[in-house]
Amino acid sequence: MNPISLVFLAFAMSTDAFAAAIGKGSSLHKPRLLEALRTGLIFGVIEAITPVVGWLLGQAASQYVEQWDHWIAFTLLVALGAHMVHAGLKADDEEEEKQSQHSFWILAVTAFATSIDALAVGVGLAFVDVNIWVAAAAIGLATMTMVTLGTMLGRALGSVVGKRAEIVGGVVLMLVGATILYEHLSAA
């Protein structure tokens, strides 16, 4: 795989994480650059690990992973998005202040949900002349960059849409999940 293709692959793998990061950033109370970098690092590490795991699974598990990856991602993202929408629709007396950061586990689950397609890509990379470690590092770095930018963009969106930013974030996550499902089902 040539370096240009690797760069395009890395950024293609990070687009759904970017969209999710916009939602995550919009649901926080004015996230700072350090929180955006933390979010980017969590997403980047998980996005770098999943193609390696897929690569290790190889051809034996490729049919199973390819048949279910879109359903797993869809379910996780819709569930997380619905939770965010529910939290955004709470009555004012129930409404809590926006958090200044998301928990590690919420970020990790979201990152995993947006990186399941990278698992399937990793399986495919097992049959291509590519250094999986370089590919995984490129994917992780691209994702870290895109998620950091997405979180900060979400900050700007959060101030525009006010207290209902969590609803926007939840809808974005559900749309990412629906898009992943649609792309896989329409390609079949």
Score class of each variant (00 low, 15 high):
Thr50Phe: 14
Thr114Gln: 00
Ser62Val: 04
Pro51Asp: 04
Thr145Asn: 06
Gly162Arg: 14
Trp68Asn: 12
Ile139Gln: 00
Thr75Lys: 01
Val65His: 01
Glu95Cys: 06
Asp16Ala: 10
Glu183His: 15
Pro3Gln: 07
Ile116Arg: 07
Ala165Cys: 06
Val85Tyr: 05
Ile180Asp: 08
Glu95Leu: 14
Thr15Phe: 11
Tyr182Arg: 15
Asn131Ile: 05
Arg155Leu: 03
Phe8Ile: 10
Val7Asp: 01
Trp105Leu: 08
Gly23Asp: 09
Ile46His: 07
Met146Val: 09
Leu6Glu: 12
Leu119Met: 12
Val168Thr: 14
Arg38Phe: 15
Asp129Trp: 00
Leu153Phe: 13
Lys30Tyr: 09
His70Thr: 06
Asn2His: 11
Lys24Cys: 05
Leu76Ile: 07
Ala108Leu: 06
Gly88Met: 06
Glu94Lys: 14
Ala165Asn: 10
Ala111Val: 07
Ser62Thr: 04
Leu77Tyr: 04
Val121His: 01
His29Ser: 10
Ile46Pro: 00
Phe43Ala: 07
His86Tyr: 10
Gly25Ala: 12
Gln63Tyr: 01
Met152Asn: 00
Ala20Arg: 15
Arg164Lys: 15
Met13Ser: 11
Gln99Tyr: 06
His70Phe: 14
Val85Phe: 05
Glu96Gly: 08
Ala10Glu: 07
Val7Lys: 12
Ser100Tyr: 14
Leu141Gly: 09
Gln99Glu: 09
Pro31Tyr: 03
Val171Gln: 13
Ser115Arg: 02
Ile46Phe: 12
Glu47His: 15
Ser14Cys: 09
Val7Asn: 08
Glu166Thr: 07
Thr110Cys: 08
Ala136Cys: 05
Thr15Cys: 02
Gly122Ala: 04
Lys24Leu: 08
Leu80Ala: 00
Gly54Trp: 05
Phe8Glu: 07
Ala108Arg: 02
Val53Asn: 00
Phe127Cys: 01
Ala82Thr: 07
Trp133Pro: 01
Asn2Lys: 07
Ser186Asp: 15
Thr148Met: 14
Gly88Val: 02
Ile139Gly: 03
Ile49Trp: 06
Leu6Arg: 06
Phe43Asn: 04
Val45Met: 09
Leu149Thr: 08
Lys98Leu: 15
Phe74Glu: 03
Gly58Cys: 01
Ile22His: 11
Leu80Met: 08
Gly88Asn: 09
Leu41Thr: 11
Val168Phe: 15
Gly150Val: 05
Gly170Gln: 15
Ala21Tyr: 12
Ile22Asn: 08
Ala108Gly: 01
Ser159Met: 14
Trp105Phe: 12
Arg155Lys: 11
Glu96Trp: 00
His70Pro: 00
Gly154Gln: 05
Phe127Arg: 04
Gly44Glu: 13
Ala79Met: 11
Val53Lys: 05
Gly177Thr: 12
Val52Trp: 10
Leu80Gly: 03
Leu37Asn: 04
Phe74Ala: 09
Ala126Leu: 03
Ala73Pro: 03
Asp16Arg: 14
Ala120Phe: 00
Ala91Gln: 13
Val160Arg: 11
Met13Glu: 10
Ile139Phe: 01
Glu183Val: 10
Val52Thr: 03
Asp16Val: 13
Ala113Asn: 04
Gly54Arg: 03
Thr151Val: 07
Lys163Met: 07
Glu95Lys: 15
Pro3Asn: 13
His86Gly: 02
Gly44Thr: 12
Lys163Arg: 13
Val147Cys: 02
Asp117Lys: 09
Trp105Ala: 08
Gly177Asn: 14
Phe18Ala: 02
Trp55Glu: 01
Val168Ile: 13
